[in-house]
Amino acid sequence: MAIVYRTIDPENYQEAYTFNLFWEYSWRDSSTAYVADSEDERKKKTDALIANLTRADRKYHYLAAFDDGAMAGAICLDRMLIDKRPACHVQGLWVHPDHRGRGIARRLKELGEDWAREMGSEFMDSNVRVDNRNMIQLNEQMGYEVARLNFRKELR
């Protein structure tokens, strides 16, 4: 069956909750220091996600890929000003391991770019961990360039 790409349905709590889990997994997979959300935190974040889906200003865009009705991947986009220019930031992108290597992440980013253009964004912005070779390669293949570096120093 073909992959179906669509926005999250704000009337479907379970779908929004699953999307929120995928968003959490994008953070978890990008950092060994990530602390998973509690069930209460997940519910609060899902409620906020649903509220964001119905915002009149369309600041956020929550798009998912579905394979035979099951969520296979997700991208979370946030419109904002970056360097005083309208932009769209990828807050999270994650594809379930069983579905990787099928072009889902690329297609989610392409659809995200289409939405960002429609919303008047001048560019896309995305953060990638330095050790995430697959996502770095995908970004480079799609024409993304390094715009800034993020440095970190542990203060223990």
Score class of each variant (00 low, 15 high):
C88V: 01
C88Q: 07
H89S: 12
H89N: 13
H89A: 12
H89F: 15
H89V: 13
V90P: 13
V90S: 09
Q91S: 13
L93I: 15
L93G: 06
W94L: 05
V95G: 01
V95F: 06
H96F: 06
H96N: 08
P97V: 12
P97L: 05
D98N: 12
D98G: 00
D98Q: 11
D98M: 04
H99C: 12
H99L: 03
H99W: 14
H99Q: 14
R100Q: 15
R100F: 13
R100V: 03
G101V: 11
G101M: 11
R102S: 08
R102V: 06
R102L: 14
R102Q: 15
G103N: 06
G103T: 07
R106D: 15
R106N: 09
R106C: 11
R107T: 14
R107H: 10
R107M: 12
R107K: 14
R107A: 10
R107W: 00
L108V: 03
L108P: 03
K109H: 09
K109W: 00
K109G: 04
E110K: 05
E110C: 01
L111G: 06
L111M: 14
L111S: 05
L111A: 05
G112N: 03
G112K: 08
E113C: 09
A116S: 14
A116Y: 03
A116R: 04
A116C: 08
A116I: 09
R117T: 11
R117F: 13
E118F: 04
E118W: 02
M119T: 04
M119W: 07
G120V: 01
G120M: 05
F123L: 15
F123T: 07
M124R: 10
M124I: 02
D125V: 12
N127F: 08
